[in-house]
Design a protein around this nucleic acid. Sequence first.
DNA 1: CTCTAATCGAGACGGTACGTCGCGTCTTACG
DNA 2: CGTAAGACGCGACGTACCGTCTCGATTAGAG
Lengths: 224, 224, 224, 224
Amino acid sequence: MKSGQAKQNPGELCDTVAHTPAAAAASSFATSNLADPRAVKSGQALRAAMLTLLERKPLEQITIREIAAAAGVHYATFFRHHPTKESLLDDVAADQIDRLVELTLPVLDAVDWHASFLALATYVDEHRKLWTVLLTGGAAGAMRAELLRVSQQVAVNRALQDNIIPVELAVICTVGLIVEIVSWWLRQPEGVVSVDQVARILHRVVLPSTVQSALEEREAGGAR
Amino acid sequence: MKSGQAKQNPGELCDTVAHTPAAAAASSFATSNLADPRAVKSGQALRAAMLTLLERKPLEQITIREIAAAAGVHYATFFRHHPTKESLLDDVAADQIDRLVELTLPVLDAVDWHASFLALATYVDEHRKLWTVLLTGGAAGAMRAELLRVSQQVAVNRALQDNIIPVELAVICTVGLIVEIVSWWLRQPEGVVSVDQVARILHRVVLPSTVQSALEEREAGGAR
Amino acid sequence: MKSGQAKQNPGELCDTVAHTPAAAAASSFATSNLADPRAVKSGQALRAAMLTLLERKPLEQITIREIAAAAGVHYATFFRHHPTKESLLDDVAADQIDRLVELTLPVLDAVDWHASFLALATYVDEHRKLWTVLLTGGAAGAMRAELLRVSQQVAVNRALQDNIIPVELAVICTVGLIVEIVSWWLRQPEGVVSVDQVARILHRVVLPSTVQSALEEREAGGAR
Amino acid sequence: MKSGQAKQNPGELCDTVAHTPAAAAASSFATSNLADPRAVKSGQALRAAMLTLLERKPLEQITIREIAAAAGVHYATFFRHHPTKESLLDDVAADQIDRLVELTLPVLDAVDWHASFLALATYVDEHRKLWTVLLTGGAAGAMRAELLRVSQQVAVNRALQDNIIPVELAVICTVGLIVEIVSWWLRQPEGVVSVDQVARILHRVVLPSTVQSALEEREAGGAR
DNA sequence: CTCTAATCGAGACGGTACGTCGCGTCTTACG
DNA sequence: CGTAAGACGCGACGTACCGTCTCGATTAGAG
């Protein structure tokens, strides 16, 4: 690592940004309430540049100067939009994560599991390029962490009880498996593994690992 | 984890196991490469320093200068032992990984699954401090990657066939789950979750996710 | 340029700099059309520091770190102004060399030799401190080489013919003698040898060594 | 005092070594009173390597490691023979300097000037290869300085009086001119300028610059 | 014809300086 | 105000040589 003594959580997305859609308008770092069209343009250029670069190298190998140059924006201007490059990544990915979580979470308690997994896989497939960058590029660690963070928050309320596996661990395992499988999928050449196949794999792997046992327990408890 | 170069002095990590007596007899070409006692001392100091620092911060935030300083060794001397800090981490961890893999792999095809998981958990518990550093500290990513790499290599030969889940993906999921669970365990205060409980969790989560379905398939195929 | 061993002409001044007063405005190393007052200040500080250090030790014993420290400037900033310390020395001395050459060259073909030498000695005396540093400090070798280089260029056109001594050698000897004599003069305590005396010494030593014989030859040829 | 920067006179030859033939036996740096043939061989190899390298680059660009490698000798062994590379150069050149000085000095007061210059040129020509390395390679500065030093010592006693030019300066000019002329000669392709021509050039340039005027003065004084 | 002491090859080591790179701050000038 | 342009302090990077220092092997020359 180079000069990095300033960053505190380089492997995780910034958690200072509000991800709720309600706060989305104010989520940008230094954007004033008055949206200067130049600032908007710069922000867009930066996000696009980040995605472009992430296709080629991991986040840590991307320098802020590179991003700025690729965006056709002056180096110092970057900092008027984001404090760190992780923040920019956050800005790029937060929406996607939120939407995916809305599809991923129901997996934990949905009635129709297969439909849920299918929806998830379909959504990823529809944004395959983006998610390939986010999950197999340099942002993978950050994405996993953020995904886990959001999942934990939501899972607290609706989780099944399990006598052996704590909820926290169950979420970790579930998210981990999903991320691994989807990442593996995106690393395959396009078309080799269909959306349907991935959904079936997810169903077959994720479900029995944590959910099924809990369901059985509940049934056993209900039958008692 | 980058470098793969074999090192002569692997088992030097603080509380690790006894040396294999087989290494002592190889005097033929080892004469020229006889370890300079000063070099041995420096190497040990560097490994110890790395572990110490990993307890406090992730690998990327650790500077080579820091490691050298903590080891009481000159900065330039670091490079006489390792080209990068990842290489040092490798040196520190490779041994442990190999031993763990020897315990982890049988999980995939052993007859007595519970015994395997128990052995794994017991081994980790016996070196809890070390593994806590390796899995919950800054080395986590590298450890996971290396673990996966070694597992993939060995799994090629002995893996079960599965019509839906490719072997490669199965290994990814299995290793991923084990790492997640063990990491979670090590993040808990010591004593809260017993070795036995972890083994049971592993059994309950890992087994059904990928192995059980394959076993059932085999049985179905054999019954035909 | 990588670590040090790339330099080809470490003892010579850079010849990429335009020394003509006309180009003096744009001659600086990395100066853009807009002169940042901070950059100007840093450049001045570096030049002053170089002169200060040259009073004490030869150029090769002066480290860039020393120069930067003496200038109250960060080490890396040095390289934003000059690629090497020789370049800085060049920046310091180029003007002086040019001016001196304008006085030195006429010596070779001027009508009034004594006046030329007197002008030379007077000019040096007026900048005695600077020239003392440049000729008796660590920059001596570089100064001599640069002086010689410039002299050779100009001498090509206006040199006298000599049947025995090639023009190139004549210039070498002339410049060498002048440098030796002036250096010796500057090494003497101030006031011991007057400007007039030095001019007379120059006249007595330099003239007969190469010029007089050529003049005599010309006269002999003209008389034939 | 620690490493590296200990050298005080990097551009000058060591003056601690006794150059008289009488002390030649004990002049070597770390040689014991008994000359071990192995040490003799190493010393020769080092001297030869130094000369070889000096043909290609200046002294400052030659590293001790290079010399040792070129000599087929271990790096540390160098220091068992010489404290610095300047010392080795000294060892290589001291004899030659002494012999040359014995030929150069009489130039100042010999009766037959031409014979003296001819002897000088002849001697240099007979060791042309060696002197080419010493005067046009990286050792030039050191050679000039050492030559001057020795000359000054001897000149004190036998110098002519001159009302205008101090003896010290006269020696400087004389040695300087000789060195410049011989260096120029050695830079020419062999055979282009004959020994006789160089002797004549020396006679024509060196003599009038400092000696002739003094002679005339003496004659004028004698005639008075 | 040993035996002791030197010399050597090998290379680890602490140390200094190198020149590069990326960071984040700041200043200046422009529109 | 937002931007372009870029100087700057900062500090880690990895490299190169330096000169010192053990550490065996080898190999004289003295007993």
